[in-house]
Design a protein around this nucleic acid. Structure first.
Lengths: 168, 168
DNA sequence: TTAAACTTTCAAAACTTTTTGAAAGTTTAT
DNA sequence: ATAAACTTTCAAAAAGTTTTGAAAGTTTAA
């Protein structure tokens, strides 16, 4: 396989994976494109290379910045805005974990805490099953949350620090 | 909050979380409903309780069985089919991890292996960036894969065995 | 057999999400 | 102030996904 074909394949694969995990396909593709780009790209270049509209490119790049995966860069004497993606895999994974934790895990934990408080007749099978499911899921979600928290501020921690090096 | 309202909230929350992670909302809701049900439900009951069509209920229950989250049960002397969900949180998490690994991670790993083989001019910045991104992501994906594999056949393993008990 | 009880299928409809592109907005240089 | 270069917005259109429900299929009991 030659480089240009391989690049397309990478972009396509990344987009597909994203969409299977609840990430907008185009967003994943723009991210992939930037991961393959040594320096920066302009909105115009992203539009061209992926054949997407100006509005879509603008919106997607903004969202990628919101996820902390892409940064805007300015060049001296130029009006155009350039976009650059961090290429450190571990940083990317951390950033995604951090955002999804904040956006999705935290709100679910709040609801589960509410639901775990619901009281009822301890002889009622329905109530017993509700209680068990909610309590167990809550416990597991809390553990995932704690683990992520630890991982995210891990550089300080000898144990996770070494686990990271293993993964990278 | 009273039990009936709490059940609805649980089903709704589970559905929303599912859809944010690439799981069909209805599928997540049917699963949630079964998690709150002490014994089994028929297709008819699922249809009623979630106000969904027969086709949808049938298709969703079949998919949940495909994911290994729900099983069909027969009752002596009855024609109807009953559906039952395992309520052990750890089993659920393992089952989901197992299926997503097989369905999504494995195919991506195959592509990444292909792409990691692509050869090019080692002075070309484009090629260097491609190589770095693909190699790094491949390495991390392989590590995730190996970790999942170990976790999934973990009962045998003292280390993961004790980690599991911590999480549960 | 037959028919009742139940399950499965799938084309069309409904709904949701994403994308477009033209118009409006902003910034900068002159 | 003006205009050129660029970015942002958003209503409408397109694309993608899910759901419906009636018809076809299957199984079982008599």
């Amino acid at each position: 396989m030659e480089l240009p074909e391989a690049k397309l394949k990478f972009i396509e694969t990344w987009g597909k994976l994203g969409s299977e995990w609840g990430v907008n396909r185009t967003m994943a593709q723009v991210h992939a494109l930037l991961l393959l780009t040594p320096t920066e790209l302009t909105t115009e270049e992203v539009m061209e290379q992926l054949s997407i509209s100006r509005g879509n490119a603008n919106m997607t790049l903004r969202e990628l910045m919101g996820w902390g995966l892409v940064e805007k860069r300015h060049k001296a004497g130029e009006r155009k805005e350039y976009f650059y993606a961090d290429k450190n895999t571990w940083n990317i994974a951390r950033q995604v974990a951090k955002e999804r934790r904040k956006r999705e895990l935290e709100p679910v934990l709040k609801v589960l805490d509410e639901l775990a408080k619901v009281d009822g007749d301890s002889h009622d099978e329905d109530y017993k099953t509700f209680k068990k499911s909610v309590t167990d899921i809550n416990k597991m979600a809390k553990n995932v949350d704690k683990t992520l928290e630890t991982m995210l501020k891990a550089e300080e921690n000898w144990f996770w620090g070494s686990i990271f090096k293993m993964f990278q």
